[in-house]
């Protein structure tokens, strides 16, 4: 019996060192942040010297119109960016999933934007958006149209376009990988069953890609909520608060306003938001599975 216990414990013993390192590396910074969010903390102090203020930081934030505006900008940004990127990325993958000569070159070209450092992307787009010497306005004027005030009134849209340009390839390659691992024979069966190319996409390809698409979407959403560099370089959050996404506000709160406690509380709001989102996605799939299982069980009981 002792021996059996020992055998059972062995794997845990081997895993323990790695698990301990992981827990420390993952949890320590996180707890540090949570702990900090309950304190009135300015960067000159060590955390020990700070004063405990309870939920004050959270409550202040909750009623702070600037924070709310920033949250709403972030939400709009993330939702629009991810939806458009999903549609274009998956669409492109469906379009380019075929064996034509030169396709591999084309695929490589498509993922180039993703390989460029975000700061560079920001700079590039900033110059292209420049009101007088930027590529876009010069081009618009050359065909006789009015220039657009890209980084002024339309700053959020411009930032969104840049992000879509950079991150659609991410969804494209994941969707393409998912497509290419689909069972070919099921698609052949669909052709025999008389499905048109659209029906094949709709009834076979998309449903079978769904698990990958959900994870991709989630990864992109999480990333979109935390986007910083490109916007920092392009607009610095302006004009006004129109493109001040949360990450930017957090960094400004910490560096400009020197309120580390408030910045930590803000980060926690973001973290909670992302956790809820992730949990909701997984809960959704679980609920669907459970629903199917229930229907099946009911049907088989009837027999």
């Amino acid at each position: 019996m002792q021996r059996a216990t020992l055998n059972r414990m062995t794997p845990y013993a081997f895993m323990a060192p790695a698990a301990i390192v992981m827990v420390i590396a993952l949890l320590y910074p996180l707890l540090y942040m949570v702990w900090g969010s309950f304190r009135d903390w300015n960067p000159a102090q060590t955390i020990g010297e700070t004063e405990f203020v309870g939920f004050k930081n959270y409550i202040t934030l909750f009623y702070d119109p600037a924070f709310r505006e920033s949250l709403s900008v972030t939400l709009r940004f993330a939702v629009i960016v991810v939806s458009v990127e999903m549609v274009i990325g998956v669409g492109l993958a469906l379009l380019l999933d075929r064996n034509i000569r030169g396709m591999s070159v084309l695929r490589t070209l498509f993922i180039l934007p993703m390989m460029i450092a975000p700061v560079v992307v920001g700079l590039m787009w900033r110059y292209m958006y420049h009101p007088t010497v930027g590529t876009f306005n010069r081009w618009l004027k050359s065909i006789g149209l009015e220039g657009v005030d890209w980084l002024g009134q339309n700053a959020l849209m411009s930032v969104i376009i840049a992000d879509i340009w950079q991150w659609t390839p991410f969804i494209f390659i994941l969707a393409l990988a998912a497509l290419q691992s689909l069972p070919r024979s099921a698609l052949e069966a669909a052709r025999i069953d008389g499905a048109t190319p659209w029906q094949q996409i709709w009834h076979i390809k998309i449903p079978l890609m769904m698990p990958v698409l959900i994870v991709t979407c989630l990864l992109r959403l999480i990333d979109a909520f935390k986007v910083l560099e490109v916007i920092l370089v392009m607009t610095e959050g302006g004009p006004g608060l129109s493109t001040e996404i949360l990450a930017l506000r957090i960094s400004r709160t910490a560096t400009e306003f020197r309120e580390l406690g408030v910045a930590a509380a803000m980060s926690n709001y973001l973290l909670i938001l992302l956790l809820i989102l992730t949990a909701a996605m997984f809960a959704y799939t679980k609920i669907q599975e459970a629903r199917e299982a229930r229907i099946r069980a009911a049907a088989e009981e009837d027999m």
Binding site: A189, A190, R191, I192
Partner: peptide, 16 residues
């Protein structure tokens, strides 16, 4: 295939 009016059983089933 759909224009040839046929049904097929695949060697590897090819179920959805």
């Amino acid at each position: 295939p759909k224009e040839r009016d046929l049904a097929m059983v695949f060697q590897d089933y090819a179920l959805y």
